[in-house]
Every structure is written in C-alpha cells, then in structure tokens.
C-alpha cells in the first residue's frame, strides 16, 4: 500500500481558538509523505485543538490548511483521528466495531481485514468479545487497529500511547514506521517519546 507520491500537508499561518480564546497563532508547517510531526507543549496549549483542526472537526480561527495529493477537499476526509475517546461501541464485538469503521472510513480500497488488523495489535484472541469487556489498554489497541482497516494517508494521533504497556508501545511504533514507509503522514500530540524520527512543533510558549 503506497500513498500518492505528491502527498503533502500544508499549514499556513494557522491560528487556533477554543471557546473564544486564542490558543496559538502563526503556525506554519509543511509535511511531505513519510514525515511525522510531534506536537508538544503544556496542558491547554492547544495540542488537541490543533489535531481537531487538522481533522476538519474545528475551523481554524484564521489561516489556511490543505492536503494535496489525497483527492479530498478537506484534510479530515483523508485522515484517521485517534482522540481521547476511542469511538468503540461497548455492546459490539471488536470485529463488529472494526467492520463498521472499515465500511464507513474507507476511501475506495479496503486495508487489512478486521482479523488481520487485530493480529497486528496482538488482539487476535478477542475478536468476538464485546468491547465493554476489554481493559483500557486493550480498547486502545482495538482503536489503533482501526487505523489499519481503512487506509487513510494522514494519521492524527492524540496521545496514542495512553494506557499502552511497553510491548504495545513498541508495536505502535512499528505500525507508525510502516505507515511512514508507505508514504503516509503522521501528526501526533504527545508527552511521551513515540520512538520515531520526527520533527517537533512546540506549542504554548508563554509570553
């Protein structure tokens, strides 16, 4: 699976606001396929807001944003967003959850089957268990498997390593490297070291 070679994410003079207050301004960056950006900064600096803006869930207060080479109008339509909430239904099994999201989020061609994706996050023992029976770390792994069932070039990860043990964090790092190797882009907000080569964008330097 290789994404378009001209894939690139441009942000030009972005300003972020939440609830009427300015969080950050003058953010400009360009990411090409295969590049990752780590967004760091103190609580309330606007890390999650930046990811939600990149996901087209919030409008930026000002500035421009575009994703070239993905054939979509808004970056969010070609992005996977892994936020604090896992978007999994407790009453459905892990496989049912993944099957649904693979139908909903696919951009034309399907990625791994739910079972294969679960194997990649070491959850292949529990495809038929309702998600409500899983632990926080296991749910997180199922949510990460969602990134694999419907290939999308831009991954937006908000604290992806939360609740993951060391082995799972290593597997996550491997998955992220695979994504970059196939020409994808990753933007991750994190406090932890994710173990991948990446540039850093530090938000919220207080005046």
């Amino acid at each position: 699976m290789v994404f378009h070679q001209d894939l690139s994410l441009h942000a030009h003079e972005l300003a972020l606001a939440r609830g009427g207050r300015r969080l950050a301004q003058g953010l400009s960056f360009t990411l090409k396929g295969g590049e990752a950006l780590l967004v760091t900064g103190p609580n309330g600096a606007g890390k999650s807001t930046l990811l939600r803006v990149l996901a087209s869930l919030l409008a930026p207060a000002s500035g421009r944003l575009s994703l070239d080479g993905a054939g979509v109008e808004a970056p969010g339509l070609a992005a996977h967003y892994l936020g604090h909430a896992e978007a999994l239904k407790g009453a459905l099994t892990a496989r049912e959850n993944l099957e649904f999201w693979s139908e909903m989020l696919t951009m034309g061609d399907f990625g791994l089957s739910p079972d294969e994706a679960l194997a990649r996050v070491a959850m292949s023992h529990a495809p038929d268990l309702p998600v409500s029976y899983l632990s926080a770390g296991q749910r997180r792994r199922v949510a990460i498997a969602r990134l694999l069932v419907a290939p999308r070039p831009l991954w937006l990860l908000d604290e992806p390593a939360t609740a993951l043990d060391a082995a799972s964090q290593t597997r996550l790092a491997a998955l992220m490297k695979d994504h970059l190797a196939s020409g994808g882009i990753i933007v991750a907000a994190t406090h932890a070291d994710l173990g991948l080569p990446a540039r850093e964008l530090r938000l919220g330097a207080k005046p």
Partner: peptide, 10 residues
C-alpha cells in the same frame, strides 16, 4: 465515545 467525530470525517 468519539464516534461522532469519525462520522463527520467519513
């Protein structure tokens, strides 16, 4: 549970 965000991105 965050599903609404993803539905908006579909």
């Amino acid at each position: 549970d965050g599903s609404l965000d993803l539905l908006e991105m579909a």
